[in-house]
């Protein structure tokens, strides 16, 4: 193999700046998508547990749609299909005037996709709290809403904290799919550096290292948030 190594390349301008911009876009996509996913997932999970049979079915359908279609295809649908199906004026606005069209669309796609996964996770957390807790809370005179707010959800939340950090790692990785609709995040930047310089080892190596550092940080955080680590000290 004949290859001229040049690791300094990724520390020099303009490539260092490209990588930094890529990391910033990756983190912005992940954070915005995460916020959207959290807002949507909790009500969906609660409806799946507490709704009437029809509502439960609808919430289950919501989860299954977002989980059974590849994220890349969901990106294409939000980008190419949804504006066509909107009322004419709104569709035109999305296509012509919406600020940061690629980024905004990617955040919506990423957030909706992740909301399906988080709703499943929240539901599994609620299911993991023993049934007797609801009965006990009701017997103490709490309403069902109070029982969930003060008794079930705090315990469920504690159970899912560690898996929640690994879901955040998933959204960081999944944000790379936004490159298919034109968001130049970290993976796309490294591809661009490879394209310009033919130094693929260094370009992809730098991106890999950055992802590994992010994953390592989240992994340490997850270890601290495991239920055993959080056990109430008496």
């Amino acid at each position: 193999m004949n290859y001229a190594w040049d690791w300094g390349l990724v520390l020099r301008e303009p490539y260092a700046g490209w990588l930094i911009a890529g990391v910033a876009w990756t983190l912005a996509l992940s954070a915005a998508g995460w916020a959207l996913a959290l807002i949507l997932a909790l009500p969906v999970a609660l409806l799946r547990v507490l709704g009437s049979p029809a509502i439960r079915w609808l919430a289950g359908f919501y989860v299954s749609v977002f989980r059974n279609i590849p994220l890349i295809l969901q990106m294409f649908v939000w980008f190419f299909v949804v504006p066509e199906l909107m009322p004419r004026d709104l569709g035109l606005w999305v296509k012509r005037d919406m600020p940061q069209p690629e980024f905004t669309t990617a955040v919506v796609a990423l957030g909706m996709y992740t909301s399906g996964r988080l709703a499943e996770l929240f539901r599994s957390g609620i299911d993991a709290v023993p049934r007797g807790q609801v009965s006990a809370a009701l017997a103490c005179g709490l309403t069902r809403a109070q029982a969930y707010q003060y008794v079930i959800l705090p315990q469920a939340f504690r159970i899912i904290l560690a898996p929640l950090t690994s879901e955040f790692l998933s959204i960081v990785k999944n944000s790379s799919i936004a490159l298919t609709i034109g968001v130049v995040e970290l993976t796309a930047e490294s591809r661009q550096i490879e394209d310009m310089t033919f130094h693929g080892f260094e370009a992809f190596g730098a991106a890999t290292l950055i992802y590994v550092v992010i994953a390592f940080g989240l992994d340490r955080m997850a270890a601290r948030l495991r239920p055993s680590a959080l056990a109430v000290r008496t």
Partner: peptide, 25 residues
Amino acid sequence: VFAFRAVPLILVIFWFYFMVPLILG
């Protein structure tokens, strides 16, 4: 395991798309 789980699949695909031909010549 840690490395492959830390990195997006698209980046892995790029790695090998670029690297396999380089190694095999």
